[in-house]
Write a protein that binds this DNA or RNA. Structure first.
Lengths: 212, 212
DNA sequence: CCAACAATCTATCACTGATAACTTATCGTC
DNA sequence: GACGATAAGTTATCAGTGATAGATTGTTGG
C-alpha cells in the first residue's frame, strides 16, 4: 500500500511507474469490453499498456488468464453490492424487488465487467478449462451464494412459492441475467422504455417466485 | 435433387461424389457442436470433409459464414417448431408452458446457433458485424416474432397480467434467454437437475406473466 | 482427341498466442 | 562508487490460424 522505498524494489524500467499488472488489466478490460475477448490480440493489449507483447506473459500465463482475473473482480464487486443492499432489510415484497434491482443495476451500470464476467465464451473443454476457470468459478459461486442467502430469507418466512431454495435462486438469477445480458449485447433491439421494462421484468419475477 | 448427368457437371474430382457444400456443413456442424465454433480450425473441417483447407473457400467466403449458414437453418427449425406447437392450441396455461418449452429445448439442443445469434460478442467495427450477422439475426428475429404472436393470443383472451404485449413478450423472452444462455455458457456450474430446473423456470415465468 | 473450364491442390501470406534467449535497469553489498 | 545477482523488458522466433494466388487436375461438350 504505502510506498516503502527500502523494503522492495519498485523496478519500473522504461517510462511509467505504478503496477504493470494493473496497467495490463486496465488495457485488457477496455479492449475486451469494446471488441470482445477473442477479437482482441495480445499485441493490442500490450500496445495500449505501453509494453511489448511478450512482457504480458511475465504477469499472465495466457490471455484467458487476463479475462479470468477481470472476471473474478467483477464477481467480487457484485457480491459486495448485494451484501450491502441486504443488511437491515426485512423480507418484504418491496425489498425483494430492491434486491433484484441491485443485480440489474450492477449489470446495466457496469456493462464491461458484466460482459467479461458472465458473457465470456468458453475457449476449450474439459479439464484444462476447469483449471483455467477455477478462480472465476469460485468467485461466481460466492456471488451466487449471496444471492441464495437472500432467497433463503424469503423462504424461511414462508414467502416463496417453492420450498427448494436452490431452484428458486437459479431461476431468479437466470431471469435477471437474461434481461441484463440482452440489454448489454443487443442495445439496437427495439426495446420498450428501459425503466419500464426493468420494473415490469422484476415484478414478473417476484410474482413468479413469491406468494401473493 | 436427382442426379441429372446431362444438365450440369457433378464434377467430383478425388474420391467422393455428392454435394460438397453439404459435406462441408455436415463436417462443420459436427465439429462446432463438439468443440465450439472458435475452437475448430478450418483445417479440421477440411480434413473431416475430405478436402483441402482452401477448397472450403470455394463454397464459403469465411469460416463465420459456415456458422451463419448452420445458424439460419437452426432458426428455421425453431420457427417451424414454435409454429407447429401453436396450431390448434387453445390459450391455456399448460399450452403456454409448452410453447416456452419449445424455445428452451431449441436453445439447449442447438447451443452453437443460439450462441451465434444471441450471445455473440461484438467482434469488429459494426458494419462488418452486421454483414456477418444479418442473415442469422433476421432468422432469429423471425422466431422472436412468432414468440410475440403467441403472447398476443393470450393477451387477446385476457389471460395476461399486463395489457402491453411488447413488454410481456420482451420480459418472457429475456427470462427464457437467461436460462438458455447460462446453461450454454456455464455448463460447469452446479445447476439443479436440468429437467426440474427448466420446468420450474417456465412455471415461474407463467405465474409472473399470466393471471392465475 | 482436344480446348475449355470448373474444381481442387500446393504454396504462401499476414497475423495469432506463446516461448526462448539476450539485454538492461535497479538492487543490496562491499 | 563498483560489483555480481536478479527482476523486468526487449527482440527474434515458433507453430498454428484464417484466407488468398496461382498452378494443376479432371471432366466435358464438340
Amino acid at each position: 500500500m504505502m510506498k516503502a522505498p527500502s523494503i522492495r524494489s519498485p523496478r519500473k524500467a522504461k517510462g511509467h511507474g505504478g503496477e504493470r499488472r494493473e496497467e495490463i488489466l486496465d488495457a485488457a478490460l477496455s479492449l475486451f469490453s469494446e471488441k470482445g475477448v477473442h477479437a482482441v490480440s495480445t499485441r493490442q493489449i500490450a500496445e495500449l499498456a505501453g509494453i511489448s507483447q511478450p512482457a504480458l506473459y511475465a504477469y499472465f500465463a495466457t490471455k484467458d488468464d487476463m479475462a479470468a482475473e477481470l472476471c473474478v473482480r467483477a464477481f467480487a464487486i457484485l457480491t459486495s453490492r448485494m451484501a450491502a443492499a441486504r443488511v437491515g432489510h426485512q423480507p418484504t415484497a418491496a425489498n425483494f424487488e430492491r434486491s433484484m434491482r441491485v443485480y440489474v443495476d450492477f449489470g446495466v451500470e457496469n456493462p464491461n465487467p458484466y460482459r467479461v464476467a458472465f458473457m465470456i465464451e468458453k475457449s476449450q473443454h474439459g479439464e484444462f478449462l476447469d483449471k483455467m476457470n477455477s478462480r472465476p468459478m469460485l468467485a461466481g459461486l460466492e456471488a451466487f451464494q449471496m444471492f441464495s442467502d437472500i432467497v433463503a430469507e424469503y423462504q424461511a418466512v414462508g414467502m416463496t412459492l417453492l420450498d427448494d431454495v436452490q431452484i428458486t435462486t437459479q431461476t431468479l438469477w437466470a431471469g435477471l441475467h437474461g434481461l441484463v445480458s440482452l440489454l448489454i449485447a443487443r442495445p439496437e433491439f427495439p426495446w420498450a422504455e428501459r425503466e419500464v421494462l426493468i420494473a415490469a421484468h422484476i415484478t414478473m419475477l417476484r410474482r413468479g417466485a413469491l406468494k401473493p
